[in-house]
Design a protein around this nucleic acid. Structure first.
Lengths: 196, 196
DNA sequence: TCACTAAGTCATCGAATGGTGACTTCGCAC
DNA sequence: GTGCGAAGTCACCATTCGATGACTTAGTGA
């Protein structure tokens, strides 16, 4: 990250985005200065304004999830919750400071549009998917209650670093994922995902 | 809050703490300036340093939960989870910007000692209490999984403002609280609390 | 080789930040 | 009333913040 780059705008932008992603995730928007980001990237701070316009626009660009991850909707429906748990809790998010981007973004949730982006992502990525699986009444509420569990697990594992959640493996959680998902969705779910 | 106070140190300190509590909860540590807090309290900014020493010490003093709330451990054990849900999700936290202090403090979780304080509070206030109720193996993990659900519910309701959770009443949640708590703790629990 | 353009640097701005010490004024005991 | 100590005010400091515009340098195509 610090090795000298020959003059190369795309590579410099990429380096800035990478540093920004990490800093903003780990320290939040306000605690991160453009000078910090530039120093991490080994780049002159003014390039941030040259390339992104402002600190806020750098933040926006750095924290929009790149939809890089394989779509979690693929695969057997009865494994969906297990797949989501695997993504939120067990995926390697070291590029985001060790937390799921959604969880990291909570640290910048004083910015009103960040709240909105979190809401959109939670709803579209998790609630909507769960809602279709609910068998019974209160589909929206039950889907949100399950989403809340995922968010909470991510937070307890990576932010709060509660002992049992920090040490847990996917197989440890499987039976409880199965039980709670089955209970909340009202249809049989399994706690293990075939793909990671 | 803005009405003139005759010279009264305790009242001035109290006003500063009240403003600080709200600002720090709503905007986080870094986005809150001592001048903001002082202005809200109708007080000269330098009094903050006079009375609290530094911004950080003001934060610490303002955000230590005053153990004011009735002890959640009182009451029938089978209602404990329902009581906790009622506290985290439905209690009026307007003094903290509308969020449970634990949830609000996540916004300042870039500060390492804040993380520790969150962990301590989650463990002592929720995990420990739940752990004693678990009937079966994995007591610690299952207690944390239930705590994670509470934290997630608080976040989805007050920070993310997901539609169903925002509109939900305690009675809407009761059957699901009962089912999930019973499932995770391995013993029959009830979803309604006799006291608020 | 040389000039032109894009990439990167430099000096600097004004505002805001946390923090300090000397000063003034209020309120109460006598 | 009058001191005197506490409560509150004022001027100010060093630093850092986001941001700007003029400048220099490197790479490339002709």
């Amino acid at each position: 990250m610090t090795e000298k780059r020959r003059r190369d705008k795309p590579a410099t932008k990429a380096a800035l985005l990478e540093s920004a992603r990490l800093r903003f995730a780990r320290d939040g928007y306000d605690a991160t200065s453009v000078r910090d980001v530039a120093r991490d990237a080994g780049v002159d701070p003014t390039l941030i304004f040259r390339y992104f316009g402002s600190k806020k626009q750098l933040f926006d660009e750095a924290t929009t999830t790149p939809a890089e991850e394989a779509d979690l909707l693929d695969g057997p429906p009865e494994e969906m919750v297990a797949r989501m748990v695997s993504s939120v809790v067990f995926h390697d998010w070291s590029r985001y400071g060790g937390e799921h981007p959604l969880v990291a973004m909570l640290r910048s949730s004083a910015l009103p549009d960040v709240r909105e982006r979190i809401r959109d992502e939670v709803c579209h990525e998790y609630v909507d998917a769960f809602e279709k699986l609910v068998d019974g009444p209160d589909a929206a509420l039950r889907a949100e209650l399950l989403s809340a569990w995922l968010v909470g697990m991510g937070i307890l594992r990576s932010v709060v670093r509660t002992p049992a959640m920090s040490d847990a493996q996917a197989t440890d959680l499987a039976p409880y994922v199965e039980a709670v998902a089955t209970s909340l969705l009202g249809r049989p779910m399994t706690g293990v995902a075939t793909t990671d």
